[in-house]
């Protein structure tokens, strides 16, 4: 096995981790986009490597020496079968984990869509954005009761931003990527934060008051916390105080030029990192067929 097939994964993971850790001073919208591309690409590269190892293990390499494409494969020694078995097991586990996550999402969407949009009776203050054609915003009566009209507008604008920019897709990409490659949980958390910040910034622009937006988030979070003794806070690693602090500071640069440049850079970088791995596989497939 030559080490070069691991190179794209290593490079992509490092770039992704770096971007998640360093939190560049840019608009959260662009940070979220770049992170989603990098996280998705890293997961794809990992999957690619796993599939590749199995293909080498299965491939009848000796017969293909003569072809041009076969030469690509000569560099790779035969994979010992225990390794191939382990990789198979890993792939299977990934498949099961992804399937279970998707099934859970479908259940949740079905229950919330059946409920319909609008206000539901519940003392806990919460707001949910349900994506999709039958989606909308669900507000709890506890939330509506504790907020002023202007504060309610902040919450609505925040949820509208989630729906408008289809933030659930970013989070779906991130979550599936962590099922494929668990270390991606760190950049995934940065992605969750960036998406929330994105919606916060849109809400602040829409209501025209950053302080009001910050205070609304803080109030809702504080009202929620005693009623939520569950195990979730530590697990979700909520970023509420960081979000509030960020809103109390200056508004972020809108990155009208540097944002798109960085995003297309990320696309090209991931494309060039993944394509050798994928073309390896494509050639292998051709040889096998």
């Amino acid at each position: 096995m030559s080490l070069e097939i691991y190179l794209p994964v290593a490079l992509l993971s490092m770039t992704t981790m770096l971007l998640a850790w360093r939190q560049p001073r840019m608009h959260p919208a662009w940070h979220a986009r770049v992170l989603a591309v990098l996280i998705g690409a890293t997961a794809l590269a990992v999957l690619g490597v796993l599939v590749f190892i199995i293909m080498i293990a299965l491939g009848p390499l000796e017969r293909t020496n003569a072809t041009v494409l076969g030469r690509v494969l000569i560099g790779h020694e035969k994979v010992p079968s225990p390794v191939a078995a382990v990789v198979c097991a890993i792939l299977l586990m990934i498949g099961v984990a992804v399937a279970r996550t998707v099934a859970k999402w479908r259940r949740e969407l079905r229950t919330t869509r059946a409920l319909g949009t609008g206000v539901v009776a519940d003392v806990r203050p919460f707001a949910l954005a349900v994506p999709g054609r039958d989606g909308g915003v669900i507000l709890s009566s506890g939330l509506v009761g504790m907020l002023s009209r202007r504060e309610l507008e902040v919450v609505l604008r925040h949820e509208i931003a989630h729906m408008k920019h289809r933030h659930h897709l970013y989070l779906v990409i991130g979550t599936i990527a962590t099922r494929i490659f668990p270390p991606l949980i760190y950049p995934h958390r940065a992605l969750c934060y960036a998406v929330e910040r994105w919606a916060d910034e849109e809400a602040a622009v829409a209501v025209g008051d950053r302080t009001l937006t910050a205070r609304t988030i803080a109030r809702v979070a504080l009202a929620q916390s005693p009623a939520a003794p569950g195990p979730s806070p530590a697990l979700t690693g909520s970023h509420v105080s960081r979000r509030v602090l960020a809103l109390m500071g200056q508004s972020p640069p809108d990155n009208r030029i540097s944002g798109p440049v960085l995003l297309s850079g990320a696309w090209m970088a991931t494309g060039s990192a993944i394509s050798p791995a994928l073309s390896h596989q494509a050639s292998l497939l051709l040889v096998l067929l």
Binding site: F126, G230, S238, V240
Partner: peptide
């Protein structure tokens, strides 16, 4: 992930 909540727990 599919449902966005306004704030998570603290």
């Amino acid at each position: 992930a599919v449902l966005s909540q306004f704030v998570h727990g603290l």
